[in-house]
Computed example of a mutant assay.
Amino acid sequence: MAGSSQNICLLSVCDATPNSFGSFEEFLVALSEKLRQEGWIHVIIFRGKPIEEVEKSLLSQGAKIRTMKPSKLGAVNFVQFYKIIKEIQPNYIHFHFYPIYSIVNYLSFLFNVKIIYTDHMGSRKPKSTFKKIIRKPYYLTYSKLFSCGIEKIVCVSEFVKSKYSREYGINPKKMCVIYNGINIKRFQKKLNIKDIRKKYNLEEDLIITCIGLRFDKGPHCLIKAAPLILQKVPNVKFVLVGDGKFKNDLEKQIDDYKVRDHIIMTGTLTDVTDIYSVSSCVVVPSICEEAFCFIVAEAMAMEVPVIAFDSGAIKEVIHNKFRVIPKNHIVLADRVVEILKEGNASDKKEMRAHIIKNFPLEKCANEHILLYRNLLKKK
């Protein structure tokens, strides 16, 4: 398939099974649409069969879908991908959520194919001193063995690029930054506010939202800050969106801090735009280092003020850096109170304009197309 510009083929390999129509799935659909318009072929490999909505959307844009469950053994993956590449003959293989250093990269020497990676993940601190000590030499060793076949590594923020260079020993020349994008049309403020409030039993005027109930997303930090906020702004409801194992710990903490009457837990939502539309502010108390943070971009696109811990790439995404704070629940409470009392309408319009300019889905897809074109020209 490498001969004509009309049959250039991209193989996107994703170690994921889409069970919702999230931001990554929207990116694949947008990219597939651009590739179809260019006359390119797009083959996508998922770990498992995607949900029907994702599958239909991709197929409608001309994408072809296959499934393959990767092995923990690099040699097994090498053989599987060897067979797939021999059959499909792609010009590019773009790995998403795969480990960057593996024997799979040697496939670039057996086929005329350019290998690209994006891992989309942030940074977590090593859980032990031993892991902290061996992390850098481990990755430096692997970089010597397996980096030679990599054409380019896409970083979703400058933070990720810095992490790769610092911790993984990757040559900066092999990296480029393409920020994630969001669907601007989907993330815009809804007008049926009364109906949404009734649906979720949100009678209070002031709504503070936190999305993601995993420990590393820091919802417990908001619970800890809640009594301090309520002392100064009593008429507040805290909306926690999501589910998971950490929910039981949060339930106990909610009772310990005696804020049960002010908490609504929605569970997992297929569409969070309702909650964004009625939120007075969105809190992002991540204690992990965020690679990008879709929540920040989504909330600002819907004209909702964001207060976020200083985690990873959040400073690169947020409009007002005054709202990036240290990882401290007391500071969080103080800043929430300030935001609730100031209510700056003009700033809300600026937030959406900031996202439209810097992080639209179309820009993200276009920059990927440009990257592929430039790599095709490279000898």
Rank of each mutant, 00 (worst) to 15 (best):
M1F: 11
G3W: 09
S5A: 14
C14L: 14
A16M: 15
P18H: 03
G22T: 02
F24P: 02
F27L: 13
V29M: 12
L58V: 02
K64R: 13
R66Y: 14
A75S: 15
A75K: 14
Q89E: 15
H96M: 09
P99A: 08
S102L: 02
S102W: 03
Y117F: 15
K125I: 12
K127Q: 15
K131N: 14
L145D: 04
K152H: 12
C155V: 01
V156C: 11
V160S: 10
K163T: 13
Y164S: 09
E167W: 10
I184S: 11
I193E: 14
K194Y: 11
K194I: 13
D195R: 12
N201C: 12
E203H: 13
L228I: 07
K232S: 14
P234G: 08
V236F: 01
V239E: 02
L240T: 00
V241C: 00
F246M: 03
I264P: 01
D271V: 00
D271C: 01
Y276G: 05
S279Q: 06
S280V: 05
P285V: 08
C293W: 06
V296D: 05
M300A: 04
A301H: 01
F309M: 06
K327A: 14
D334V: 08
L340Q: 04
K341Q: 15
N344R: 13
A345L: 14
K349G: 15
H354N: 15
H354S: 06
L361S: 03
L361K: 00
Y372C: 09
R373V: 02
L376Y: 04
K378D: 03
